[in-house]
Design a protein around this nucleic acid. Structure first.
Lengths: 204, 204
DNA sequence: AATTTAACTTTACAAGTATAAAGTTATTGA
DNA sequence: TCAATAACTTTATACTTGTAAAGTTAAATT
């Protein structure tokens, strides 16, 4: 890096590199050496600023969580637009983080209760939002707001994360804009059908 | 293990132990030593039967794929029952394998074109099935059969795999029978709403 | 300018890790 | 029964990995 020493800058460089490495390879797969290379610094410097791999990932998660713009989590008024909205947020702001949550689900990632709490709060706010919309009559009574929220999470995360499955089914990888447009539209369609609660007409 | 030498038995024991290890820890995370311990045999014996870690996982996948009972993949006639059906198959027969696919999505798993082909064939048969149902008028025209299939995959896999997310949203882990019953019911409800194509009545 | 402190590097190591090579014991076929 | 082969074990190795300890250079303070 630069010749001039600067503790703060170096620390941040390491943190950034570590974020990339951890989000890409998970905790176990991440390599201190590799983080050092990304950051363009010496491996041992990481131990100077952060005491261990464990402590490092915790700082990474903390810093990532608090860097999230809270605006991402204000949902549209129309419940039929929520899925599409969340899908786009995932695409534009959370792809890396979602990949990390994939690691978390299967790898032994040291738990960060801070991050866990924050994520839970966000998800719970989605449930509360859906509940409110249901109370306003915008969402059918028979559908549990929590389950709707879980459904939306599934639909806006799975295809994105399991791009190979998406390709096997649709012929397009999740990264292709063509797929993304179609999926966004599909989410809107499905949501409209799901939340539309007008009484049915007669059978034909 | 037993005192009597038996190549076939030993080979199978290793294969079984390897399957458990790989499905649990992914390719990178799996340890030859650990597989040997599970199998109750010597580490080097694995190299006697399989030449490398890479070759071993390939045999594991091949053998798993060809062990799948094809009956699991015959879908119910009523399209509104497919999601629930697939969810139950996932729960009862595929949890371990799905966990492995989670590894595959993020870890560097050596590709097994055999398995990939087989999985693609199954998923494509789901798409074709949905298409056929659409042609019969059982599924709305405006919904792309491939995207419906991807939706069903998402809904029947994600909550199961991301049990912590499921808990954060619903208060119940995906393993709890209470959640499983609710989710199955929810899938049926949602499917019915989605596929019901009777014309709408008047707004109230 | 001299001394202390903080930033950064080099060297070192102990614990894994996949795998090779050689050794040993049981089974089998002539 | 005895030689050949296959099943299995021991020993060894080259490489990674997280981390400790000590060394060096720049910045801050007095």
């Amino acid at each position: 890096m630069g010749e001039i020493r600067n503790a703060e800058r170096t620390r941040n460089t390491i943190l950034q590199a570590a974020k990339e490495e951890f989000f890409e390879k998970g905790y176990t797969g991440a390599r201190i050496e590799s983080i050092a290379k990304r950051a363009g610094i010496n491996k041992q410097l990481i131990y100077h600023y952060f005491t261990s791999k464990d402590a490092l990932i915790n700082e990474v998660i903390d810093s990532f969580i608090s860097s999230l713009p809270s605006g991402n989590f204000v949902l549209p008024d129309n419940p039929a637009h929520i899925a599409d909205f969340r899908y786009k947020v995932n695409l534009e702001h959370l792809t890396d983080f979602l990949k990390f949550t994939a690691w978390e689900a299967i790898d032994q990632v040291p738990e960060n209760s801070n991050g866990e709490e924050r994520r839970k709060a966000i998800l719970q706010s989605y449930v509360a939002d859906m509940q409110a919309k249901q109370d306003k009559g915008l969402v059918p009574q028979e559908l549990d707001p929590a389950l709707i929220t879980l459904m939306i999470s599934s639909l806006t995360i799975y295809p994105l994360l399991y791009s190979n499955v998406t390709r096997m089914i649709t012929g397009h990888a999740a990264e292709e804009p063509e797929f993304q447009a179609k999926w966004g539209q599909f989410l809107r369609l499905v949501s409209e059908r799901l939340f539309d609660d007008r009484p049915k007409g007669q059978e034909v």
